[in-house]
Structure formats: structure tokens, C-alpha cells
Design a binder for these strands. Structure first.
Lengths: 199, 199
DNA sequence: CATTCCAATGAACGACCGTTCATTCACGAC
DNA sequence: GTCGTGAATGAACGGTCGTTCATTGGAATG
């Protein structure tokens, strides 16, 4: 029965994600993870070769899901302003539901062994490149005021990702209203008027 | 001779800051810190009652220095745009030189026992309030397009603080040029034209 | 010179760490 | 009914963790 194995494996990943986000990788033990799943520590090694592999799996899966989700949403047509708005809206709405994974992805990069680190970092670069392309197109089209594409891209991503550090469900705003605000700020931050992006 | 004690104490704090920023609180041992300073682990307890106290001291000192540095720079006169520009410039230039402390302050908040956590969080609120005041003034004066003061303040701080995650000395930009870009993006993000703030 | 005081030491503590391994167990395939 | 397979177990491993403590050493004070 492969199902059971898959479920236990996922349960381990889920428990590890929640625990590491709460306490950090170094502060979570295999015994903690096992007891959250309802098994003994040694049983984990039937599913993962090491503690590092759990962290590596978590971060790789997070970045892969992020890139795949963006690939489904991205559009090549429309003005650069439209595509920037779409990017901002996607980033905020996607990340708001994944605060644990985002937190780990940003905080535990340094806890990763090189083999995982390189792969995760490469995916981060690919994601950032998507935004850089939009900014470059916006400059070509004429509407964007951007002094430095690399810095602007990172500044926008930092601004948008910041939502995960304070957002909590059941706050005063819906996800949509929250995204509206971030979309507008993003557009304005590259010199566009409020309301420029149609998305 | 009080000097020697003070120096050893500072050396412990400096070593802990660098090590924790590199590896995280949970992954740094008292033996690691001691050996970086050149003493034995047990000697640390002549200066700090516990490992937690070292982390607490680091974070409290960081926030106190930040608030004190801002208090020296802040101006009550000038337009809101000027003061926003001054805030952005201060935040970027100050944080760029303190990447270790900033990283710890953001990452290890959850590692802090409640007593320290409350104090540190209160100082963070005070700092954020400075920016909120500027935004509120800018709305009153008429020039700012801000849909939500709380979210805008956090978005701006996240954007500006983000510089610490990738900036490294000896990069292609001077600190001043870097700050110029962030100041301009900050002003535009609240709907001001590029070049609005005079600072 | 004698006294005080504090930083530093090295050994030890109980606890917990990640990982290994022989073994047990439940189950579907033949 | 037997076999093979893979998940789960509990005990154990060597090591490291934060912390304690009696002791030492070396200035500053009187």
C-alpha cells in the first residue's frame, strides 16, 4: 500500500514545516517531528535519510510550487504595467497562504547543505528574473521610472514578501483588498500612477 | 579594573552576534562563542547568566541603538515628503552597516523568551510609529497617496530592510547611491514624484 | 604584606542530539 | 499457508548541549 507511505511522508513534511517555522531548524529535533506525527524517531528514517533531507525537501518543494504556480498565471501579452500588477497580485496572494514555508525559505537558507542550497538559490534567481524582465519591458515601453533593475526587483520582492511576517488570517482585510493595496504600491514604486495596472 | 570586564563582555557579544547571524541561535553553542573569544565556556557565565541573556542583550541593544540613532537624525520641520526621504535614507544607510544585527533581530525574535520579546517588540512598534506619523502628515498635507497607513508603513520598512539580505561591501554601488535609489522608490511608492524629497 | 574580589578554569552533571540496527509486525502476492 | 516487503519499534551509540561549582590566579585596595 503506497498510500500509507505517502501519507506518512507528507505528515512528516507538514509537521516539520510547522515546527521549524515556529522554532527554527536547529531547535527542532527528530523526536519532536516524530511525536507530532505520532511515530517514533527511528521511523522517520524509513522516509528520509537525514534531518537535512527533510529541510532540503521542504525548501525545494516550496520553490518548485512557487515557480509552477506563477507559470500558470503569467501572461506574455498585455502592457508591462499589467504584467507587473499581475506579478504583485500573484506574489501577495500566493505567499499569504504559505507563511510557514516562506519563513523557512528565507530563514533557513544558511542551514542548507551546499547541494540543496545551490538548487534552491537557482530557483530563486529564476523567479527574480521574471520580475526583472517585466521591469526591463516597462522601461523599454517608456512608462517605468526605474533607476536600477536589479535593486528595484529585490526591493519589490522584499516589500511584497514582507506581508508574511505580519499577516494573520481573520485580520481586518480580505486577501483581495490586501493585494489591491500592494499592487498599487508596487505600481507607484516604479513611477506609475495609481490604478495603472488593470489586473 | 572594570575595563577588562567590559571588553570581555563586548567581545562575547560581538562573537555571538557574528556566529548567530551565520548559523542561527539554536545552532551556536556556548563553547563556540567562548572559543571565538579565546576563553572557556564556563567563563561566559561570569558575564551573562544564560545563553538567552546573550541573545536578549543583543536584540535589546540593537533596537536601542536604532532608536537612538534615529532620534539624532529626525527632524520635526520640513514637509512630510522631506521627512519621509530622511527616514528612508536613514533606514537604509544605518541598516547596511549592521547586517548581522538586523538579521538576528528579524530571525530570532521567536527564540526570545517573553520578557525580552515584549521589550524588543515594543521598541519595534515605536520605530514603526515614527514612519506612520510621517505618512499621516503626508496625507493631511495632501501629497501622499496612501490607502492604508499601517500596511504602507510595514511595506516600506520591509522594502528598505530587504537591502540587508543581499548587500555586501565592495559591491558596485556606494552606500549613498544605494540610498538614493531606495529613497526615490519610497517616495514614489506613496504617490510622490521622483525627486520630491529634498534630503 | 595581607586582604578582597572577580574573572577564568577544568571537571562534571543530566539531558538531549542525530543516527544506526536488529527485530517485530502487518500486509498483499503467489 | 508461506513468502517477501517495507514501515515501525526500542534500545543503544558517541557526541554535544547549557549549566554548575569548587578552585585558582592575579591584580587593586587597605
Amino acid at each position: 500500500m503506497l498510500d500509507r507511505s505517502q501519507n506518512t511522508r507528507d505528515a512528516i513534511l507538514d509537521a516539520a514545516k510547522a515546527l521549524i517555522a515556529e522554532r527554527s531548524y536547529g531547535a527542532v529535533s527528530m523526536r519532536d517531528i516524530a511525536s507530532a506525527v505520532g511515530i517514533r524517531q527511528s521511523a522517520i528514517y524509513n522516509h528520509f535519510p537525514s534531518k537535512q533531507a527533510i529541510l532540503g525537501d521542504l525548501m525545494m518543494a516550496h520553490m518548485e510550487r512557487l515557480l509552477a504556480a506563477w507559470a500558470q498565471v503569467r501572461q506574455f501579452h498585455g502592457t508591462a504595467a499589467d504584467r507587473l500588477a499581475a506579478f504583485a497580485r500573484f506574489h501577495v496572494t500566493y505567499h499569504v497562504d504559505q507563511t510557514d514555508a516562506v519563513f523557512i525559505a528565507y530563514m533557513e537558507l544558511r542551514s542548507l547543505e551546499e547541494r540543496y542550497f545551490e538548487a534552491v538559490n537557482e530557483m530563486r534567481r529564476r523567479y527574480e528574473y521574471e520580475l526583472r524582465t517585466i521591469l526591463a519591458d516597462g522601461i523599454d515601453e517608456g512608462g517605468f521610472k526605474v533607476r536600477d533593475i536589479a535593486i528595484t526587483a529585490r526591493a519589490i520582492i522584499a516589500m511584497l514578501t514582507g506581508v508574511t511576517t505580519w499577516y494573520s488570517e481573520g485580520g481586518r482585510l480580505t486577501t483581495g483588498a490586501l493585494a489591491d493595496i500592494y499592487v498599487e504600491m508596487t505600481l507607484m514604486s516604479v513611477g506609475l500612477e495609481a490604478g495603472a495596472g488593470r489586473t
